[in-house]
């Protein structure tokens, strides 16, 4: 994926060079922009709007209604505020989608042999989240005649609290287990390395004043003052 992106951006740069348009801060003419984005631009745009994130599409989820409920739930758990972006802008729903499509979603490193006893969930992580987000919509419909994403923030919090407290009926899993998994995966998506699709632009790390995948702190270990650093990601370790 990363390679593909690089190829794309270099060829884009090459195109701009040969067509005589400089990069960075310059307003690019409409013809060039439309060539790059594949749609006609109606107004002046900076080059950054030409970036398409090819990694943001659904791998695991099939129904938009499921993914929308997931997105709204993650945002309620980690909302946008004066500190910065919330779960959605950080890419958390896509992080979770990717995780569920892969080995983590299917518990390949866990012991999943029968018999499962009372209190154990005989389900894969992917099944728990999928069933849970559908239940979010169903409960919203029963209580408010709306989809979960259409509820007010307070209504969403109230319903999520019912899940958290294990009060919502689910099949073969307690709703508290679903909520705990959802909360955990939301935090992962907020603060993972951007390679996983979350923590977009390292904005989660910036809010937390966490410097990311640094290689060494040997020169500041004894420093008395707090040191705020520009974070680095694994992409810089290549």
């Amino acid at each position: 994926m990363a390679d593909k992106k690089n190829v794309d951006s270099t060829s884009r740069r090459a195109f701009l060079k040969t067509s005589g348009v400089a990069l960075g801060g310059l307003i690019v003419g409409g013809g060039v922009t439309s060539l790059l984005t594949g749609k006609a631009s109606t107004e002046k745009k900076q080059t950054k709007t030409t970036k398409v994130d090819y990694s943001e599409a659904l791998q695991f989820f099939k129904r938009s209604s499921d993914f929308d409920a997931l997105s709204a739930a993650t945002e309620a758990i980690y909302p946008e505020d004066e500190n910065g972006p919330g779960a959605i802008k950080l890419g958390v729903p896509y992080y979770i989608d990717k995780q569920l499509a892969g080995s983590y979603g299917h518990n390949v490193n866990d012991y999943m042999k029968i018999p499962f006893q009372e209190g154990e969930a005989p389900l894969y992580n992917a099944d728990i989240i999928l069933q849970g987000v559908r239940r979010l919509n169903e409960v919203s419909n029963t209580q408010h005649k709306k989809l979960f994403k259409e509820l007010t923030e307070d209504q969403q919090i109230e319903i999520l609290t019912q899940f958290e407290q294990g009060k919502v009926k689910m099949r073969l899993v307690n709703s508290a287990i679903f909520f705990a998994l959802l909360r955990e995966m939301t935090l992962e998506g907020c603060y993972c390395d951007p390679v996983y699709g979350g923590n977009k632009n390292m904005a989660g790390w910036k809010m937390k004043e966490y410097p990311g995948a640094q290689m060494s702190y040997a020169n500041i270990i004894e420093e008395e003052k707090f040191i705020k650093m520009q974070p680095v990601s694994l992409a810089s370790h290549k």
Binding site: E188, Y191, D193, V195, A213, Q214, L234, H237
Partner: peptide, 13 residues
């Protein structure tokens, strides 16, 4: 060498 990754090592062990 490419191991400074919390999801891979701390979360997914």
């Amino acid at each position: 060498l490419h191991g400074h990754d919390e999801v891979k090592y701390t979360v997914h062990k």
